[in-house]
Write a protein that binds this DNA or RNA. Structure first.
Length: 513
RNA sequence: GGGGAUGUAGCUCAGGGGUAGAGCAACUGCCUUUUAAGCAGUGGGUCGGAGGUUCGAUUCCUCCCAUCCUCACCA
């Protein structure tokens, strides 16, 4: 790490003092800008003749940005500045900007923020630039940035030299990463576009954006370990939400028919390429709809988000070509298993499925062996996920996989009663999981609204939430709900390999000494 | 948590049991259309941290820390 002893930093603090001695405030309050760099470059046309060239000199523009490169040539200086659009070259001559500004210019460094006034012209070597007549220091930078050089070849190709590439430093000092690595900003612009597009799709269908608690005294709605915190005044433990599902359903009970919320969820589990302890989901709930409605909306939301970023539904993720065009394939979990293995797990005994897995050395958690449904879903995960590259909805999971989903509509009440008694029978529920590039990118149900069954399933596998049960007892209309993993969608649409590349500030271990 | 890799100047990297190297950046000088500007010169390091082996460790060994990859856990 850099400390204040660092020679480069010490030098910059000295320069700061010299600038002050010249009577210049290195941190002024504001600056008037007339243009962005991209506008100046886009709007420039070459003058026809000498008279026009002269006339152009009266069109004074004003622009500000951070110095990204500087080339001093004695009494003239070229530098590049970057604003939030692009980089543009500045040409500064001592006899035009004045003595004091030029003295300051001599002390400027890469990273300093300046404002200039001048006219746009094209240099001998062809680069559109600003010929400056005034220079003002807007912010002195005292912490040196990595020096990244851009070379533009004759073919117009851009080569980056000495890129700031240390992954750890990039995440820990994201502000530097954003300044210096151009594509990083692009990823986060895309992220914003994607979220905006998804929001637009939901609003188009009349969904209302709402906010529910992050701090919850009972956590639920997903199967995950929570972060625990403490409220001092009330002296009670509180949990950071692992999901907002149970609150959004309360709102459906309350009479909102379509709601959605983008939320940070917090799950106290391992960190890897696709998992960060806090991550973003969008969940939406639609009264009077079922999971077929949700599938349609899900595929449309992703398709539209893709178009918003790429203008097409065809993308390339790493080496894989993906087409996100709706409609996506739908496949029942048991059919996926049959396609892959030829096994009809419904007619097989539970122990025979387990035997099959052992014989084929398929990893299996024996803690799950009490439930035929969990055995089937383990088999699916072990064998079938790897084939789910193009977008697909896997539908109809065993009931043991979730306590919040309604059994298939084809079962009669009498049948359900019988099936529950027989451990070789598996009840399936109206659930779907969308897969893209082998990743689960969401989870959705025809929501369970039978309060008796809901209470029973909570007793078996979920922290009891009496208030939620009461809401279901008050009566929730037939409803479908969806959770979409926003970070993974962003990863796919920005060709990012690690979830940290799509989070501005991913969790890093602190570097305390 | 297991396995593998990495950690050397502000940045990108090379090196290797005997007082540390390059390019860029910095500093001094020259240079008023340069562009990875150029030319000449100068400075800059607890070689991730702590122990150990050794006459001597940045190099070899052990442990620790951080990051990446991978497996496991986990939606």
């Amino acid at each position: 790490m850099v400390n204040e002893q660092n020679e480069l930093i010490k030098r910059r603090f000295e320069e700061l003092e010299e600038i002050k001695k010249l009577g210049v405030n290195p941190y002024p309050h504001r600056y008037d800008i007339t243009h962005k760099a991209s506008e100046l470059i886009k709007n420039f046309t070459d003058p026809k003749d000498e008279t026009e060239t002269e006339a152009r000199k009266k069109d004074i523009v004003s622009i500000a940005g951070r110095i990204s490169a500087i080339r001093r040539m004695g009494k003239a200086t070229f530098c590049h500045i970057k604003d939030d659009t692009e980089r543009i070259q500045l040409y500064l001559k001592k006899d035009e900007v004045g003595e004091t500004p030029y003295a300051i210019l001599k002390m400027l460094d890469i990273g300093d923020i300046i404002g200039v006034k001048g006219y746009v012209f094209r240099t001998k070597t062809g680069e559109i630039s600003v010929h400056c007549v005034a220079l003002e220091l807007l912010t002195k930078s005292v912490f040196p940035l990595p020096v990244v050089k851009e070379e533009i070849t004759e073919s117009g190709e851009k080569i980056i030299h000495d890129a700031f590439a240390d992954v750890e430093l990039r995440y820990r000092q994201r502000y530097i990463d954003l300044i210096v690595n151009e594509n990083v900003k692009g990823t986060f612009l895309s992220r914003t576009k994607i979220i905006k597009s998804i929001r637009g799709t939901l609003e188009k269908y009349g969904f209302l954006e709402v906010e529910t608690p992050t701090l919850q005294s009972i956590y639920g709605g997903a199967n995950a370990r929570p972060f625990v915190t403490h409220h001092n005044a009330l002296d009670i433990p509180l949990y950071l939400r692992i999901s907002n599902e149970l609150f959004l359903k309360r709102l459906i009970v309350g009479g909102f028919s379509r709601v959605f919320e983008f939320v940070k969820d917090f799950r106290n589990e391992g960190i890897d390429r696709t998992h960060n302890p806090e991550f973003t989901q969008v969940e939406w709930y639609q009264a009077y709809g079922d999971y077929y409605d949700s599938m349609k909306l899900f595929e449309e939301a992703v398709e539209q988000a893709c178009i918003a970023v790429h203008g097409t539904t065809k993308i390339k993720y790493q080496d894989v070509e993906l087409d996100l065009k709706a409609p996506w394939k739908r496949i029942k979990m048991v059919d996926a298993i049959k396609e892959k293995t030829g096994l009809d797990v419904l007619s097989m005994k539970k122990d025979d499925i387990i035997l099959y897995m052992k014989q084929n050395s398929i990893e299996f958690d024996t803690k799950l062996s009490h439930s035929k449904g969990l055995v089937i879903s383990s088999l699916f995960e072990a064998l079938c996920e790897e084939d789910l590259v193009q977008p697909a909805f896997v539908i109809d999971h065993p009931i043991d996989t979730t306590p919040l989903c309604k059994p298939l509509r084809e079962y009669t009440l009498a049948q359900l009663g019988e099936m529950k008694k027989d451990p070789e029978q598996v009840i399936f529920v109206e659930r779907f999981e969308p897969y893209i590039n082998k990743w689960e990118v969401g989870n959705a149900y025809t929501e369970l609204n039978d309060p008796v069954l809901q209470r029973k399933l909570f007793e078996e596998t979920h922290p009891m939430d009496d208030d939620f049960i009461r809401a279901i007892e008050v009566g929730m209309p037939p409803t479908t709900g969806v959770g979409m993993g926003v970070d993974r969608i962003v990863m796919l649409l920005t060709n990012s390999v690690n979830i940290r590349d799509v989070l501005l500030f991913p969790l890093m271990k602190p570097l305390d000494k």
